[in-house]
Design a protein around this nucleic acid. Structure first.
Lengths: 221, 221
DNA sequence: CTAATAGTGTCTCTGAGACACTATTTG
DNA sequence: CAAATAGTGTCTCAGAGACACTATTAG
């Protein structure tokens, strides 16, 4: 890490920014939060302040630009093309986060993530960042049970399956899915008697075994 | 990415560095290349120069500090603790790379990566970077067949298995391993008549299907 | 009752590991 | 010949998907 004999000030330094792709599931569709900026729709972001950590800058950007707090951030990739920002030399660390849609402020602008129309509306290289965020989300959801807590503490297996179908963008078999997740759940004993049909059992996440065993299949196409 | 209304020069900027964990397999053991620096053993690294891309800085660092070229780099994580370097505010992007041991210069210092003694000898947070590099290498090797070309173009299944055993740090079953990789190989028709026993068939990588199907098992413990 | 949804029993298929067997070399 | 290594046939086990069946509610 050290350029032997060179002082830290020998070279001009880049600006370092963070951008955050906040993913959510709305109406059974994976979506990303965008904000309106001078260059059109963009991911919320900010420049890194002195002594600040990247995740703190990401949190601050989200609070400032979108009015929300409490997400957990995952570093994705640093975008470092020297000409990616016409204002100067700006490196940006892309972050991914995920929040339930009812945790977003009113009037938040969501863009649906179809596998069609992937690279349309976002400024800079932000569409590319979204793609990284989706890959990261899918990888994390295949290893753990709803690690970003897009569902509340208690939920039915159907609600969990609808969530995973949104995350992976494809239908999942009802019976296999249940067997796949049931070991990571514990029942509350309560039932949800909402609509027609037999009431569904209400579960919560098990504190110990958060791991999803055979979710290797979810990873594959 | 844009702090609306703020100019790029409103805040001091961090120094940005790259560090590279060059992994190799020597004597059937996964090892990492280190260099001697003012703070003891460390990964080769360098500060980012104006307009330079991170991967270019990583390549330059490797050439300057260790005299080697031609590796391919993978971004791992940016280490951003404000106090991680006592010379000042230095962010460092950790990179992983892998090279065959005979591509390293004479006198290169290698440190073996046991799962014991994981965090001993390296300066800064470099031991942590090595751990990321190993995880990344294993993930890439479970998806593709020797993607970093630690083996030459032609090799036997035994040589390939020895490589994978070194990468994953555990023995792999001979017969299952063969069936797992054989679809990604094509025969050269030649045989290797080296030692005792039936000569082994010599294979090369198939250009098309580089994917390793059932390598999900390699990922698990 | 029927419609609708929740949950399960069971069959098949596939793939990994274990084991033993055959094949081909050196000495 | 024996020893050593390469490669394969086959059995078992586990897990995923498909399918159909049972269970429990509303109306």
């Amino acid at each position: 890490m050290d350029a032997a004999g060179k002082s830290l000030t020998d070279y001009p330094r880049p600006s370092v920014a963070v951008d955050v792709a906040v993913l959510t599931v709305e109406a059974r569709e994976l979506s990303v939060l965008v904000v309106d900026g001078p260059r059109g729709l963009a991911l919320p972001g900010s420049f890194l302040r002195p002594g600040e950590r990247l995740s703190d800058a990401a949190e601050r950007a989200l609070l400032t630009k979108a009015g929300l707090a409490g997400a957990d951030f995952h570093q994705l990739t640093m975008f470092d093309a020297p000409d990616r920002d016409d204002r100067g030399w700006v490196l940006s660390m892309a972050h991914g986060a995920a929040l339930p849609v009812d945790g977003l402020p009113r009037g938040a602008r969501l863009v649906r993530i179809d596998d069609r129309t992937p690279d349309e509306p976002l400024a800079f290289d932000h569409a590319h960042m979204v793609s990284y965020a989706v890959d990261d989300l899918r990888a994390r959801y295949s290893r753990h049970l709803d690690p970003s807590r897009l569902l509340p503490d208690e939920f039915t297996v159907l609600e969990l399956r609808r969530l995973y179908e949104a995350v992976y963008g494809r239908p999942l078999p009802k019976d296999s899915f249940r067997r796949m997740v049931v070991d990571a759940l514990e029942t509350t004993g309560q039932l949800r008697s909402g609509g027609a049909g037999r009431p569904a059992e209400i579960f919560r996440r098990r504190v110990d075994a958060e791991l999803l065993a055979g979710a290797a299949t979810l990873v594959s196409d």
